[in-house]
Computed example of a mutant assay.
Amino acid sequence: MNTNVDQFTQWLDEHNGQTLSIQKGEHETGSKDVLDIDLISLELQSVEVRSANQNTQDDYLPSEEVILYGEGYIHGDETRTPLPDNYFEIPLDESFKFHSDGNEIKIETEKALYRISTN
């Protein structure tokens, strides 16, 4: 596991039991422009880091992913829909960057930008 992943999971462990606000912005392919923004709230119960099978040749699979377990909701226009499986996945790739600013962290990958904060 690299240092950024360690720092990321340590931050999450410190906020276990708290409600997290997650803002996910998907990048346009080959660009840093954000196409779509999803808003999620999740009461964090546990964290798992899962490594992909290195023998795969599928470029769509991440090298690692961080899975946040807990009851959560996707927030839409005046609606709130439960997460289907009580977890939220953050796929990580070689371009993964982590920045912490106290009660907020920023995660950037090739495909998305995540802002996670405590309520």
Rank of each mutant, 00 (worst) to 15 (best):
S95Q: 14
T29R: 10
I22V: 15
S51I: 04
K24E: 12
F8C: 12
V66E: 03
Q23I: 13
S41I: 11
E14G: 04
T81P: 00
I67M: 06
L42D: 01
I90T: 04
S63D: 12
G70L: 00
I67K: 08
K106W: 04
D36H: 14
S117Q: 07
D33R: 15
F96E: 02
L42Q: 03
E108M: 11
L20T: 02
N119W: 02
F98P: 04
L44V: 05
G25A: 13
Y60G: 03
Q10E: 15
R115Y: 14
D38I: 10
S21K: 14
T109I: 08
V47N: 05
E14D: 15
S95V: 00
L83C: 07
S41F: 02
S117A: 13
D58T: 02
S63G: 04
S21N: 14
T81I: 15
D33F: 13
H99D: 10
G30N: 11
E110G: 06
S95P: 00
H15E: 08
E26T: 15
V47G: 03
L39T: 09
T79W: 07
N55V: 00
Y73L: 09
S46L: 01
Y60A: 05
D6Y: 11
G17C: 07
E89S: 13
T9V: 15
D38V: 11
D77R: 06
F88H: 07
E89D: 08
Y73I: 02
K24R: 15
D38N: 12
L44W: 12
E48W: 06
L44G: 06
V34T: 13
S117W: 12
Y60C: 00
F8V: 05
L20Y: 10
F98H: 07
T29C: 02
K111T: 13
R80F: 05
N55K: 08
Q54I: 10
G30P: 03
G72C: 05
K97V: 10
K111A: 12
Y69V: 02
F88R: 01
G25P: 03
T81L: 06
E64M: 11
E108H: 05
P91A: 12
H27T: 01
H27S: 03
T29Y: 12
V34D: 03
I105T: 04
P82L: 11
K106F: 07
Q7R: 14
D93P: 00
Y87E: 08
D59T: 06
A112S: 15
D36W: 11
E64C: 02
P84K: 14
N53F: 10
L68F: 06
L61Y: 13
D93Y: 07
D38C: 01
D13P: 00
V66Y: 04
V47E: 09
V47F: 08
Y114L: 01
E64H: 15
R50S: 10
Q54S: 15
Q54N: 09
E64K: 11
E64G: 00
N16S: 14
H15G: 07
S95G: 07
M1K: 07
E64W: 09
V5M: 09
T118N: 05
F96A: 04
D85R: 09
Q23K: 10
E28K: 15
S21Q: 14
S100L: 10
